[in-house]
């Protein structure tokens, strides 16, 4: 491997599926469960996180030769905190209603381990362009999970999507889905489905191998 491999599409795709931050690496669970009671909140959270992730990966990758190794974590945390402050103030100034809905969870992006994880594991040892692609991919993976989770929870818990009534007035909303237990449950069932799919695939490859051997 050369010292600076060029940015490839794989840098983007890896974060979306194979190394998905939430369902594969179990990072960033706190926002993924806390704000996904409606699609609008999930989207707003994803956008704020994307902004912070892009900003921190960009700065960390460009400053990687300047930051001394001993204080790198502290420096990364400071960089992330700066971008979170910007995102927090921007949200408060432009869409105050969304900011109010998300409440303290915007500030809590700062302790989203996913962002620090990308800074430490990727941006601190790769080129700026690759780090940006990596940030985009990770953010996309995070967004997909948040939107799916919030869509399921809003549809079942309130009978609507993005505030638009879908299931009609005769639908009795499962209120529990928009409450905290629904968050754990939805993600849990999602994990079961992913595990089931993986097991099926494993069986299929094993069967194919047995056919070859025979």
């Amino acid at each position: 491997m050369s010292e600076h491999p060029p940015a490839t599409f794989d840098d983007f795709l890896r974060g979306v599926w194979r190394e998905n931050p939430v369902v594969v690496q179990m990072l960033g669970l706190c926002p993924a469960l806390a704000v996904t009671n409606s699609v609008a909140n999930g989207l707003a959270m994803s956008m704020a996180t994307t902004f912070v992730l892009l900003g921190s990966n960009l700065l960390v990758a460009s400053l990687k030769r300047v930051i001394p190794h001993e204080v790198r974590i502290t420096s990364y945390v400071l960089i992330i905190a700066t971008f979170v402050t910007i995102a927090d103030l921007l949200l408060e100034a432009t869409v105050p209603s969304v900011h109010k809905q998300l409440g303290p969870f915007v500030a809590l992006i700062v302790v989203n381990c996913m962002i620090l994880g990308r800074a430490e594991a990727f941006a601190s040892r790769n080129t700026v362009s690759r780090s940006l692609l990596d940030a985009l991919g990770t953010a996309a993976g995070f967004t997909v999970v948040l939107v799916l989770l919030s869509a399921v929870r809003e549809l079942l818990g309130a009978g609507s999507l993005l505030g638009v009534d879908i299931l009609g007035p005769q639908f009795e909303p499962w209120v529990i889905m928009v409450l905290p237990p629904g968050g754990f449950l939805t993600l849990g069932i999602g994990m079961l489905l992913i595990g089931w799919q993986a097991e099926r695939q494993q069986r299929r490859t094993a069967a194919a191998r047995a056919m070859e051997a025979a």
């Binding site: 179990m26 754990f184 993600l187 994990m191 079961l192 595990g195 097991e199």
Partner: peptide, 18 residues
């Protein structure tokens, strides 16, 4: 087997939260 690990933990967390 497919619930082993994280899946079952999340379901338990859901019950505790409930």
């Amino acid at each position: 087997s497919l619930a082993k690990g994280f899946g079952i933990s999340l379901i338990i967390a859901s019950c505790l939260s409930l």
